[in-house]
Simulated scan of single mutants.
Amino acid sequence: MSLAPRSSARITALGTYVPERIVTNEEMSRIVDTNDEWIVQRTGIRERRYAREDEYTSHLCIAAVEDMVRRHGSRLDDIDLILVATHTPDVPFPSTACLIQTHFGIPAAGAVDLNATCAGFVYGLHMANSFISSGLHRKVLVLGADALTKITNFEDRTTCILFGDGAGAALVEYTEDEGAFLAAHLGSDGKGGKHLYRAGLADSLFGEQLGGGGKLVQNGREVYKFAVSTVPKGIEALLAQSGLPLGRIDAFIPHSANTRIIESICERSGIPFEKALYSNEYYGNTSAATIPLALQLGIDEGRVKPGDKLLLYGFGGGFVHAGLIVRWG
């Protein structure tokens, strides 16, 4: 059971980026045996964005930060910590966060990558609030970014149709007013790791041989079961912790893995589907970037306004999951 977060922080800025190249379902049908109707019915995805061959996660992050600066006029030189949520770093090390720090010339920032796969952005926000509310930091740059097409097996028709590339950037800053982080709930089930993984130095997990040749491997049925059984319980815990009734939640922003998963979570949680914001329809599953992308779409469409209470929930490989209730603006 998670304790209600102490909060002296709020999210002050947001920016996003997706690559220019649009890959439609019709184009996917020329790569693998599939078609637009089959993909839309099962996933809700119509298009996805692919990074260029020479475009990596750090480039996606830099573009998202630049978008944030354009939108909000944010200062970067006083950032004191950079957290990048990704499982597709340009290189194992140096960290993507270090690449961001040096690109923008941020003079005195700690820099670290964290890997919570598709829940990474929510984990990053939670950590930023924790660091700031403890008094250790005052301004944290949180990024959720993945270049999933770099690790996609394009011979696997069940997974290659899902993924795209993208990034989101948020500033979390100290506030003397009431903090905006109202509830937090984290969890994990490592036994589920065998259902969604990418092999690395080890070629086995829990005594079972790993495959995929370094590409992403996913058992979609097991991921679905995990999400629709775990997330509704997490939502219940968040509401109990915050003392908010479900009707006070203005928008639900889950990881945009698959529209059918989101529909099932909404049904089991009692959340009206029209309150759900998702980004997979035209961007695909961008892992750690899906939630900031969906949030920015909601802001642009006027569906998210200052003062709104947002329920964010990420879930993915590990298995890991993380939820937050935050006040926007």
Results as ranks from 00 to 15, higher is better:
residue 114 L to S: 01
residue 78 D to N: 14
residue 90 D to T: 07
residue 119 A to E: 12
residue 106 I to E: 12
residue 90 D to G: 07
residue 107 P to H: 09
residue 146 D to I: 09
residue 124 G to H: 03
residue 106 I to A: 09
residue 126 H to I: 05
residue 125 L to S: 01
residue 79 I to H: 06
residue 83 L to G: 04
residue 111 A to W: 02
residue 130 S to R: 05
residue 110 G to P: 09
residue 81 L to E: 12
residue 87 H to M: 13
residue 100 I to D: 03
residue 127 M to V: 14
residue 80 D to K: 09
residue 98 C to F: 08
residue 112 V to C: 14
residue 96 T to W: 04
residue 86 T to N: 07
residue 111 A to P: 03
residue 108 A to Y: 10
residue 78 D to R: 07
residue 97 A to S: 14
residue 84 V to C: 01
residue 110 G to T: 08
residue 87 H to W: 00
residue 110 G to R: 09
residue 143 L to W: 02
residue 143 L to V: 11
residue 110 G to M: 10
residue 93 F to M: 11
residue 130 S to M: 04
residue 124 G to E: 08
residue 118 C to E: 13
residue 140 V to N: 03
residue 130 S to D: 15
residue 106 I to R: 08
residue 147 A to S: 15
residue 140 V to T: 10
residue 129 N to C: 09
residue 130 S to C: 03
residue 127 M to S: 10
residue 150 K to N: 03
residue 128 A to K: 05
residue 76 L to Y: 06
residue 138 R to H: 13
residue 126 H to A: 15
residue 150 K to F: 00
residue 142 V to F: 02
residue 140 V to R: 05
residue 85 A to W: 00
residue 133 S to T: 14
residue 76 L to A: 10
residue 106 I to Y: 10
residue 95 S to T: 15
residue 137 H to D: 03
residue 83 L to P: 00
residue 107 P to A: 08
residue 84 V to H: 00
residue 135 G to F: 07
residue 85 A to N: 00
residue 146 D to Y: 07
residue 108 A to E: 14
residue 116 A to N: 08
residue 79 I to V: 15
residue 117 T to E: 04
residue 131 F to Q: 15
residue 128 A to V: 07
residue 97 A to D: 10
residue 89 P to D: 13
residue 101 Q to R: 13
residue 124 G to K: 00
residue 96 T to E: 06
residue 83 L to F: 07
residue 118 C to I: 05
residue 125 L to E: 03
residue 150 K to C: 03
residue 138 R to C: 00
residue 140 V to W: 07
residue 100 I to C: 04
residue 112 V to Q: 11
residue 107 P to I: 11
residue 87 H to V: 11
residue 98 C to A: 15
residue 76 L to E: 07
residue 133 S to D: 12
residue 101 Q to M: 07
residue 110 G to C: 11
residue 121 F to V: 06
residue 103 H to G: 10
residue 86 T to F: 07
residue 120 G to S: 04
residue 121 F to A: 11
residue 141 L to P: 08
residue 147 A to E: 12
residue 111 A to S: 14
residue 145 A to D: 11
residue 130 S to E: 12
residue 125 L to I: 14
residue 133 S to N: 12
residue 107 P to F: 05
residue 105 G to Q: 14
residue 122 V to E: 02
residue 99 L to I: 05
residue 102 T to L: 00
residue 76 L to V: 11
residue 138 R to M: 02
residue 117 T to D: 02
residue 116 A to V: 12
residue 99 L to D: 06
residue 81 L to W: 12
residue 100 I to T: 08
residue 123 Y to C: 11
residue 93 F to L: 13
residue 100 I to E: 07
residue 127 M to K: 00
residue 109 A to Q: 13
residue 93 F to I: 13
residue 101 Q to I: 05
residue 142 V to N: 01
residue 88 T to L: 06
residue 122 V to T: 07
residue 93 F to A: 06
residue 141 L to A: 13
residue 113 D to T: 01
residue 144 G to P: 05
residue 90 D to R: 03
residue 140 V to E: 08
residue 95 S to K: 01
residue 145 A to F: 04
residue 145 A to Q: 06
residue 78 D to V: 06
residue 83 L to K: 03
residue 81 L to S: 09
residue 84 V to K: 00
residue 112 V to Y: 06
residue 78 D to L: 04
residue 148 L to P: 09
residue 77 D to L: 04
residue 130 S to W: 01
residue 77 D to K: 05
residue 85 A to C: 07
residue 85 A to E: 01
residue 138 R to E: 14
residue 115 N to R: 09
